[in-house]
Write a protein that binds this DNA or RNA. Sequence first.
DNA 1: GTCCAGGGAATCA
DNA 2: TGATTCCATGGA
Length: 266
Amino acid sequence: MGSVLDGTKKKIGSYTGIFKNNVLNVKKENEKIVFEGICDGDIKKVCTEYFDLNTDYEAIKERLSNIDEYLKTSIEYGKGIRILNQDLWETIISFIISANNNIPRIKGIIERISKKYGKKIEYNGKEYYTFPTIQELSKASVEDLRALGTGFRDKRIYDTTRKFLKQEITLEELENEKDIDVLREKLLTLPGVGDKVADCIMLFSLKKYSVFPIDVWVRRVMNELYIKEDDETKVSKALLQTMAKEKYKDLAGLAQQYLFYWKREA
DNA sequence: GTCCAGGGAATCA
DNA sequence: TGATTCCATGGA
């Protein structure tokens, strides 16, 4: 879920995380970024992909800052934000879990799933667990998933896992789908994936920066800044999508992240 | 005890 | 399409 790496606001000297089968550590030493960890491939390549290091965020921030004062302020506030390029399978399950849930509990559930069904990797004396593959997670029954605290999302996780296991849909076809509307339709066939979750999957794992995931916070901030309805819950998704496209165009997803981070932290 | 959390699905108009 | 309601769980 961690889509924010902010090396400016908080003083993060070193960050360690797990990505696919790799335990990665990044730190800054004398203005140089250093990668370390346990990696099954070229660590520089893996980190470049994961941390989205080939994307020119300065250019993006420049474009978005010129849209209006709100974007400019939010970007100054979250100037270290990057969209991590996260593993597709893990992202799908993680955002199914996120439905009507809070972040600490989402994290806990993912940790328990990983510990029970993933593989253990030791790094610097600490234990890390990979997120289970489709095959590994398919070992879990609905009851097993419920026991890990997933609540009513248990069946959704189970059913979505089965669809991939039976290859009614594949990760490859999702990764290779260029047409964003076709891609959304495919994601929406997965149990537990609705509009918001589909958009999050596309933004956080498939680099679709034009999509605009609408959650309660984004609706709140858009209403406060532009619409000014008394009751924000009455602002329709359709209106928000139209506004986002007009204002932010192909960078709506990035704008969403800056506004979201700004509003949530402030 | 009540409310809420980065929604989705079922149901009904 | 649009509006309502239910769905587990745990912390505030």
